[in-house]
Nucleic acid binder design. Structure first.
Length: 270
DNA sequence: ACTGGCACCTGGGCGC
DNA sequence: TGCGCCCAGGTGCCAG
């Protein structure tokens, strides 16, 4: 899926077209997402105005006066602005038709995403136990170090755990660990406070760079305006197994960790 | 409390 | 061209 930079890129792409817009109606073609789209989503949204589009972790939050539509893009989801009469293709599951004549179209071939309604979104079970935002000030090396006390899990799945910190997916976890010079299989509890500082900084840096580039181009992803992201060519290790490390020329290694493929330089990362 | 493993689902790429 | 296999950006849930 879209990782955090892709979700943030999508949010920025759609926000100008959606904020302050009144919803005409919601068309649900297939409600079988990870959880069923609520049967009354149209009743909740029709006639209300979307005041703001926020992001929390990888969720997009469409805020209205009466509640919030939660959207998650899963592994293969995308959202974009279209003309309301544009014909729907396969996997275009939901349209939110706007007073402007445009529509917000949600597409998700694998249907791992979701579209829900909550009156108090931050208290929703899916959101309430999430860790800090990686780009916020309350996320730093000291926080990571404290949370890692006594943890035996490898550092890579540790930073991918949304309960620890949100928004670090499989691509950027590998990239951040390369940036910090930490081996992905090192136990979280055995990373020094000093190196946790490097790691927190590397997570922030890689996410910010990716957002600036408009996200990483992947099979299904494009931003709200339909333009692909350009970060992929800047990746240091992800999907670069066997190719030379950009720092030391050693061939990049691949290993499976927590059922996810992981990439690293065995010379630069310890 | 923590950990690892499985599940959900579709499609693309590969080797034969 | 077709078939079977493996892999893919996430994350909730389960048993141990």
């Amino acid at each position: 899926m879209p990782e955090l930079p892709e979700v943030e890129t999508s949010r920025r792409g759609i926000a100008p077209w959606v904020e302050k817009q009144t919803v005409k109606t919601v068309v649900v073609r297939d409600r079988r997402l990870r959880w069923p789209v609520p049967a009354d989503i149209d009743r909740k949204l029709a006639g209300t105005t979307i005041d703001r589009v926020h992001r929390r972790a990888k969720y997009l939050l469409f805020e209205t006066a009466s509640g919030t539509m939660l959207m998650h893009l899963g592994m293969s989801g995308s959202v974009r602005i279209i003309e309301a009469d544009e014909p729907a293709m396969k996997h275009d599951h939901v349209d939110v038709l706007l007073a402007s004549g445009k529509a917000l179209r949600f597409r998700d071939p694998r249907r791992f995403g979701c579209l829900l309604w909550a009156e108090e979104p931050l208290e929703h079970p899916l959101l309430r136990d999430l860790g800090p935002e990686p780009l916020a000030d309350d996320f730093d090396g000291d926080y990571l170090w404290r949370r890692a006390r006594g943890r035996k899990v490898s550092i890579k799945p540790f930073i991918m755990n949304a309960n620890i910190v949100v928004g670090v997916g499989n691509i950027y976890a590998s990239e951040a660990l390369f940036g910090a010079g930490i081996h992905p299989r090192r136990q979280a509890g055995r990373v020094s406070a000093e190196r946790m500082n490097l790691l927190a900084d590397a997570i922030k840096a890689v996410l910010q760079r990716a957002i600036r580039a408009g996200g990483t181009t992947l099979r299904d992803f494009s931003g709200g305006d339909g333009e692909p992201g350009y970060f992929r060519q800047q990746l240091d290790v992800y999907e670069r197994a066997g190719r030379p490390c950009r720092r030391c020329e050693t061939p990049i290694s691949a290993v499976v960790l927590g059922q996810r493929s992981s990439y690293y330089c065995k010379r630069c990362q310890r």
